[in-house]
Design a binder for these strands. Structure first.
Lengths: 209, 209
DNA sequence: CCGTATAGATCTACAGTGTAGAGGCATGAG
DNA sequence: CTCATGCCTCTACACTGTAGATCTATACGG
């Protein structure tokens, strides 16, 4: 049957994981599958289509893990599970993050993830009218975080030279200089951010719920 | 003098704005300047260097506007000014957003923007030790939002067919279905999110300040 | 004023890219 | 057996970024 398509997508995933998204050329994928470049087109339509398929395959993996994640009664641990899953996916497949921003959640797997978040927010007591917005708020933050982390916005720039010194041009930097020096524990910061977002959700629930 | 470099960057910006980032090729830029492709290299080192220069030029524009934005005494309006400036920059130059994720804030203009946010958070009463984290939280959300908006994650997918129906597979969608139908007012949602983030900042200030 | 150094622009060429188009070949249907 | 359909191959085209050699015009020291 159409196992060929899966084979192609799988090969493309492998290449992306080890050589980055830039390494995914039709020729490279074709060679990995053991076929000429043009032989991919009956199965994939386009290079864009191939990229979409790759992303879909990844989200399907997440979708499989989702039932376990949605098992808990506590909405907090489910929200946390989403955040952690997204982050570890991004760490494992950095190239996928840019794709996430450009494709809306239309595949069943992606919608399933959104549904998980909707459920968590409802259980938290958020009024239904606010649920879609808060879901977008949380997932937008999470996406922004993982994009920053895997894209390099956090690392290794931020040279102490520019930010620590130059206190006159950047007075607020001078005021917080002491907390700019130590290397950041990104795991802890992510957790702290999620704590704050949890509180934000709670306050919306209390305010309007 | 080195006005040639600015001319090149300017031409590249113009091309990116009207044809997208994909339209920015060395040949296209060269033609716009009225010169052969290789003539760009004494001024720009690389294509990556050109892209960096383009982003820098944009952030410099923001930097020029910043003093006005930082004029207010109210930290809330300054934070709002940052958010609005970032968003309108993204609407005007969608291609720039992906670049933002990959380059840390090292240019003076970018650091200046961070400094503006640090100052706002300090004025809000956030303890200095929490300021860098909260700055990253806010700016990460803002970046995530503008990337989603200009990248297409919000638009025009989200087909009511998939999300509205299929209530059995996606129970939480069914519960909020009434609020999924009307078209979203993105301006209002962005404003509401920023309201919530303001409250988050306040609560951190009260808790630990 | 003249030779020369230097920086900028040019031309050519190479190794890539995605993919359109035409032809081949084998398998299943009538 | 004939034919059609779907997958594959090969060739070719219009691109991409940029290395390397060459040419030119400008500015400077004698």
């Amino acid at each position: 049957m159409s196992g060929k398509r899966e084979e192609i997508v799988e090969a493309a995933l492998a290449i992306a994981d080890e050589r980055g998204l830039g390494g995914v050329s039709m020729r490279a994928v074709a060679q990995a599958v053991g076929v000429t470049p043009m032989a991919l087109y009956p199965h994939v339509k386009d290079k864009a289509g191939l990229l979409d398929a790759m992303l879909g395959r990844l989200l399907a993996n997440v979708g499989e893990a989702a039932p376990q994640l949605s098992g808990s009664q506590d909405w907090r641990v489910r929200l946390r599970a989403f955040a952690d899953t997204a982050r570890s996916l991004a760490m494992g497949h950095p190239w996928a993050v840019t794709l996430l921003f450009s494709r809306p959640a239309v595949t069943p797997d992606a919608v399933g993830t959104v549904d998980l978040l909707y459920g968590a927010l409802l259980d938290a007591g958020v009024p239904p009218g606010q649920v879609p917005r808060l879901e977008r708020l949380v997932s937008t933050y999470v996406l922004g975080w993982i994009a920053s982390e895997s894209g390099g916005r956090f690392g290794p720039g931020d040279p102490r030279g520019v930010r620590g010194r130059a206190g006159d041009a950047f007075p607020a930097h001078a005021a917080v200089a002491d907390w700019l020096l130590p290397p950041v524990d990104w795991d802890a910061e992510y957790a702290a951010d999620l704590d704050d977002l949890e509180r934000l959700v709670e306050s919306v629930a209390e305010r309007d719920g």
